[in-house]
């Protein structure tokens, strides 16, 4: 007897087929991610503001996303990092989304795969943030100045923040880093050392007043930001 309940159409080839199995390809985040991804407070890794969200882009009744609630005050110097996202012609990209990932003030990641027990976790600092850019194409995060993290061999990396750029027209995430002008270790950082000298400046944020570090992300064109192969 045929079991009518379990008959099913022959599947097309897809990622469940061993012959095709492999990395799921990237696709653009598109222009309409604002009600789905950047939660309230996603760009404030220190306090309890609503930074990072864009409540102006959809109706109040469609706010389903969290207001993230830090559990206390993290250790370290509170800073803001901000900048414009610009296209090949220097025009602002108003539908981009930026994510950051960084170590705490002691140089420790709040991560299972950072298992060093000689550097303390900060229970009040996770180090992951997400921000939609504003109507002028500016991203902005409030966070902690990261400590130094070991690099390959016996090297020590300069303080840095890992940055992902998403947006309409970006089929793949663009991965870059933000360093701090004048920070200890910039001259010996093992990742900066892989970047041609004349392009290193595209990764180094400049101080702009109290606690604010500014770095424009130029997706293409003159002074194009260095993106890394990951």
């Amino acid at each position: 007897m045929t079991d009518l309940e379990t008959r099913e159409p022959a599947p097309r080839q897809d990622n469940r087929d061993p012959a095709l199995f492999g990395q799921t390809p990237s696709q653009t985040v598109g222009p309409f991610f604002h009600y789905g991804l950047p939660w309230k407070g996603g760009a404030d890794l220190v306090g309890q503001s609503e930074m990072g969200a864009r409540p102006d882009l959809f109706a109040e009744e469609h706010w389903l996303l969290n207001l993230s609630a830090p559990t206390g005050t993290p250790q370290g110097a509170v800073i803001e990092i901000a900048g414009r996202v610009l296209d090949a012609e220097g025009a602002p990209v108003v539908d981009a989304m930026i994510e950051i990932w960084q170590a705490n003030a002691a140089g420790r990641y709040h991560a299972l795969d950072d298992d060093r027990d000689d550097v303390p976790i900060d229970p009040h600092f996770i180090g992951f943030g997400r921000a939609a850019v504003d109507a002028e194409g500016v991203y902005r995060f409030r966070t902690i100045l990261p400590g130094r993290v070991p690099g390959p061999g016996n090297s020590l990396q300069a303080p840095h923040v890992a940055v992902s750029v998403f947006g309409r027209g970006l089929i793949k995430r663009l991965a870059t880093r933000l360093y701090f002008e004048g920070a200890a270790g910039n001259d010996e950082d093992p990742v900066l050392a892989c970047v041609p000298v004349e392009r290193r400046g595209t990764l180094i944020a400049q101080p702009r007043g109290e606690g604010l570090w500014w770095l424009d992300l130029r997706l293409a064109g003159a002074d194009e930001t260095v993106f890394f192969d990951l």
């Binding site: 960084q102 170590a103 089929i171 991965a175 093992p190 990742v191 930001t225 260095v226 890394f228 192969d229």
Partner: peptide
């Protein structure tokens, strides 16, 4: 067209980051 980087991505060692 106006958003894709023109330069190839830079290869660097992966670190704890």
């Amino acid at each position: 067209v106006l958003r894709a980087p023109a330069q190839p991505p830079v290869r660097a060692p992966q670190t704890l980051t």
